[in-house]
Amino acid sequence: MQLDGALADLLALVHTYGVVDPDIAHRVTVSPAAALPEHDETWPYDLGALQNPRDASVLLLFGSMDDRPATFDRTIVPKELDILLTQRSLALRNHPGQVSFPGGGQEPADDDATVCAVRETQEETGVDPTGIVPIGQLPTLPLPISNFRVTPVVGWWQHPNEMITTEEATRVFRVPVGDLVDPKLRVTAVATDRSHKQRYGTPAFTVGGTLVWGFTAMILDRVLELLGWAEPWDPRYIIDITNWDATKPVPAAIFDHEHNARDFTGRR
């Protein structure tokens, strides 16, 4: 698969499960999108009900990173294909220290979820919005822990520029998508909610010198699966993040033969 094939797959993903941006046909040329693999499950995770939520958007910004290609080569994903991630400041109220897609709450001046996602990405990372081609929006997902209703927006970074760090994003980095599908870099992150004495888990990725887990990892996991890019991996390799400090090295994974692959929070 070449980059134009990956772009066609992303367009097919949005066409199948979401809403394609009406301007993409005028801004980028792609080969006809092939049919995606069939799946028994629907796009979203069921993460629970919300009470008077605030609308928000995140940007899944894919592009080509020629200077640091993926090391995992047993995949159909182009080695130079990458995605933009940020590490949230420890000073933030919501999800401090976590790795996430750039994004945030919608403002009154934002015409729609795409405008919000691009604006937030520029504010957090310095990415020039004129270099972004919006592909479209995926279905909105609830994020009960912070009471947001989040719309994932898929974009193509046609003209990359130098990134910056900000008060909100203390680290901004690009991760090869091929590394995200590497089974050796995939684990399950688990934590114990002491107040409710419940143990919960999410898919996770040990990439970029850190751990991608939670809501962001759940979206990545689902997108890779629906695109047909995911490789089989063993969710019984566990990293317990209950007491983990995001400024510290990622703990080593431990094999838990009793862990159920379907234990992800809200997984249908």
Rank of each mutant, 00 (worst) to 15 (best):
G97S: 07
L92P: 01
F101R: 10
T114C: 12
P142A: 11
A109E: 15
Q158F: 02
I135Y: 02
G97T: 06
Q87S: 09
E123G: 06
E120A: 12
F72T: 03
P96D: 03
T140E: 12
F72A: 04
Q137R: 14
T114R: 05
A91Y: 00
E80T: 15
T114L: 06
Q137W: 00
T121M: 08
V133F: 07
E124C: 02
D112R: 07
E124T: 02
G104S: 09
K79T: 06
N94E: 14
E107M: 14
S64T: 14
S64V: 13
T140V: 13
I83C: 15
L61F: 07
S89D: 02
Q87F: 01
Q158C: 03
G155V: 06
P78R: 10
G97A: 07
N94Y: 14
T86P: 03
I132P: 10
L81V: 08
P129Y: 09
V133I: 15
V118T: 11
D66Q: 14
E80F: 02
T86K: 08
E120H: 12
D73H: 10
R93F: 08
T140G: 05
L92F: 01
L85H: 14
D73N: 06
T125R: 10
L84S: 09
D110G: 13
P152F: 04
I132K: 06
I145R: 13
A113P: 06
Q98V: 11
T125C: 13
G105K: 10
P69G: 03
T140C: 07
P108D: 07
T86A: 12
N94R: 11
I135P: 03
R149E: 13
P134G: 01
V154T: 13
E124F: 03
L138Q: 04
H95Y: 12
V133A: 08
G104K: 09
